[in-house]
Amino acid sequence: MMTPFENRTEAGRQLAESLRHSFGDRKDLIVLALPRGGVPVGLEVARALKAPLDLILVRKLGVPGHKELAMGAITSHARVLNEEVIRSCGVSDEALEEVAREEQRELERRAGRYRGDRPWPELKDRCVILVDDGIATGATMEAAARAVREQKPASLVLAVPVAPPETLRRFSSLADKVECLMTPEAFWAIGAWYRDFSQLSDEQVIAMMREAEEQP
Rank of each mutant, 00 (worst) to 15 (best):
V41N: 00
Y114R: 04
A154F: 12
L156T: 08
A16T: 04
V45A: 04
K50P: 01
R101T: 06
R59N: 07
E17K: 15
E68C: 06
A163Q: 05
I74M: 05
A136D: 01
G112W: 12
E6D: 11
R109T: 08
A144T: 09
E44F: 09
M208F: 07
A163G: 06
L174M: 15
V63C: 10
E98W: 08
A189T: 13
E214R: 12
E214Q: 14
A100L: 15
R36P: 01
Q151C: 09
P164D: 03
I135D: 01
R59G: 02
E185F: 08
G62D: 10
F23D: 00
K60I: 10
S76R: 07
K27L: 05
L34E: 04
K177P: 07
V58F: 06
A175R: 04
H21L: 10
L107W: 10
G112Y: 08
E83F: 12
P153M: 11
I190S: 03
D132W: 00
E214S: 12
K124T: 13
R8H: 09
V58I: 14
V41D: 00
H66K: 13
P35C: 02
R101D: 10
Q104L: 11
Q199W: 10
L81F: 04
V45W: 01
R210I: 13
L130G: 04
V31K: 00
E213S: 13
C180A: 07
Q215T: 13
A154H: 11
V178Y: 09
Q215S: 13
S172F: 15
W188P: 05
A159E: 08
P216L: 12
V58T: 12
V128S: 10
E150G: 14
R36G: 00
V45M: 06
F197S: 09
W120C: 12
A70E: 00
M2E: 12
L158W: 09
L55Q: 02
A163D: 03
R105D: 05
E211Y: 10
R36I: 03
E213G: 12
M1T: 07
P64L: 08
V41K: 00
P165M: 15
E203P: 06
A70P: 01
E10N: 04
W193F: 14
R105H: 06
L130S: 02
E68Y: 07
W193Q: 01
G38W: 02
K27W: 05
S155F: 10
A212I: 02
